[in-house]
Amino acid sequence: MTQHIIQNPEFQALLKHVMEEKIPFCQLLGIKLSSFDPDNPQISIDMREQLLGNFSKGMLHGGVIASVLDSMAGFAILLKMAQHSPKDDAMSQLKEFSRMSTIDLRIDYLQPGLGKSFTASAEVTRLGKRIANVLMTLKNEKNDLIATGAAAFMLHEKA
Rank of each mutant, 00 (worst) to 15 (best):
Phe55Glu: 14
Asn143Cys: 05
Met47Val: 03
Phe25Val: 04
Arg106Gln: 14
Ile146Ser: 01
Lys95Asp: 09
Ile31Met: 05
Ala76Met: 06
Val134Thr: 11
Ala147Ile: 05
Ser85Leu: 09
Ile31Asn: 00
Ile103Phe: 09
Ile146Asn: 00
Ala151Arg: 03
Ile107Tyr: 00
Lys57His: 12
Pro41Gln: 02
Lys142Phe: 11
Gly149Lys: 06
Ser85Gly: 09
Glu10Met: 08
Gln83Asn: 13
Ser117Met: 10
Val18Leu: 15
Leu145Thr: 01
Gln42Asp: 05
Asn140Leu: 12
Leu78Trp: 02
Ile43Val: 13
Asn133Cys: 11
Arg48Ile: 07
Cys26Thr: 14
Asn133Asp: 10
Val18Pro: 09
Ser101Thr: 15
Ala120Tyr: 00
Leu110Met: 11
Ile131Tyr: 07
Gln42Asn: 04
Ser101Leu: 15
Met81Gln: 15
Gly113Tyr: 05
Ala147Leu: 06
Gln3Cys: 12
Lys16Cys: 13
Arg130Lys: 14
Leu78Arg: 03
His61Ser: 10
Ala76Lys: 03
Asn8Tyr: 12
Met136Tyr: 01
Leu29Phe: 03
Ser71Tyr: 00
Glu49Thr: 09
Ser85Thr: 08
Lys129Pro: 01
Leu14Ser: 08
Pro41Tyr: 01
Glu21Arg: 13
Ser117Gly: 05
Ser98His: 09
Ala82Pro: 12
Gly74His: 04
Gln27Gly: 02
Gly62Tyr: 07
Phe55Lys: 11
Met81Asp: 07
Gln83His: 12
Glu141Val: 14
Ile77Arg: 06
Met136Lys: 03
Met59Thr: 13
Gln111Leu: 14
Ser67Leu: 10
Pro41Met: 02
Phe75Pro: 04
Asn140Met: 09
Phe118Gln: 00
Ser98Asp: 15
Met100Leu: 15
Ser98Trp: 06
Leu15Lys: 02
Lys80Phe: 04
Ser35Tyr: 06
Lys80Gly: 02
Gln7Ala: 13
Ala122Ser: 06
Asp37Trp: 15
Ser67Gln: 03
Ile43Gly: 00
Gln3Ile: 15
Val18Arg: 11
